[in-house]
Design a protein around this nucleic acid. Structure first.
Lengths: 148, 148
DNA sequence: TTGAAAGGGCACCAAAATCATGCTATATTC
DNA sequence: GAATATAGCATGATTTTGGTGCCCTTTCAA
């Protein structure tokens, strides 16, 4: 159904959270406490984002994660690609060869659709994602470090 | 990965094929022969499309399916919606309630993304899909009834 | 120097979605 | 009635996702 996986959802939620925490390091524990999502899964996701250098990690007390670059320079496409392989409406529209390439009558078209969907995600930044929300649903408690 | 299911792929392939067959009725057997996709699955898919009145069915010898309306009036969104429930990047962006709505910090944003992705599929017609292809990959054999 | 607070890595299980198929029934034409 | 088609239903296999446990390493501070 063209659906994002939980990995992406959780990852984006966490990233949005971090975007609002500015330069401070945010621990998995903190995020889990606020966002009510499975701790280990989130850890897994953040580890992947760390490997891809979307976030940087610091161990030890006071450590955690933080964005490596400004939220308005990180596209959803990038995040989704990291967390679930790639953004494409069909295998054939990806690098992956299509099993029925010769008989497939819609490859070209599907590719075009894939491109367009991709560009939607390319054009959507983490900053926008985090922003959209703070409009309608302002935190009751003042954020730790309001930034972005 | 924002991926379409096989149901959608097969469905779209079959519809594109029918678009090129014009007013003639096309049987599952014929489509399967050309497209090399699982017969029963395709039958299943076409039945669903028939229920939704995207195609009309005629039984008996010489029967089969054909489009109920012109290919340029059928959007991919419509087809995908029928074949896999709905087009939305996340459950919460759909009718379905999100389990973590209170803690979710990106609902608004995700909804916006979902809308944009949807509109990509809304704007893409079956005619376009079938067309894209015939440019690059013309049939060696003349189509039974070239139309559209 | 020791303990607590972080993240890192690996393997694994469970649940759900997807893909695929078989069988039988019903309609239609010849 | 025989052959061609779709209609309906149930079921099994496979793949993807979602989620968890356990132990290791790093770092800070008492």
């Amino acid at each position: 159904m063209l659906r994002l996986t939980k990995r992406s959802e959780y990852g984006l939620m966490a990233l949005a959270f971090m975007a609002q925490s500015g330069q401070a390091y945010t621990s998995v524990r903190e995020i889990v406490a606020k966002l009510r999502i499975p701790r280990r899964l989130l850890a897994e996701v953040l580890k992947d984002l760390s490997r891809a250098e979307i976030v940087e990690a610091v161990r030890g007390p006071g450590g955690g994660y933080r964005l490596t670059s400004p939220a308005d320079q990180l596209s959803l496409a990038r995040v989704v690609e990291i967390l679930e392989g790639s953004v494409s409406v069909a295998k054939c529209a990806d690098g992956g060869r299509c099993d029925l390439s010769p008989s497939c009558t819609i490859q070209e078209g599907i590719n075009l659709v894939a491109q367009r969907v991709k560009s939607v995600l390319d054009d959507f930044t983490l900053a926008q994602l985090a922003d959209c929300n703070s409009h309608s649903q302002q935190d009751p408690q003042p954020a730790h470090e309001v930034a972005v």
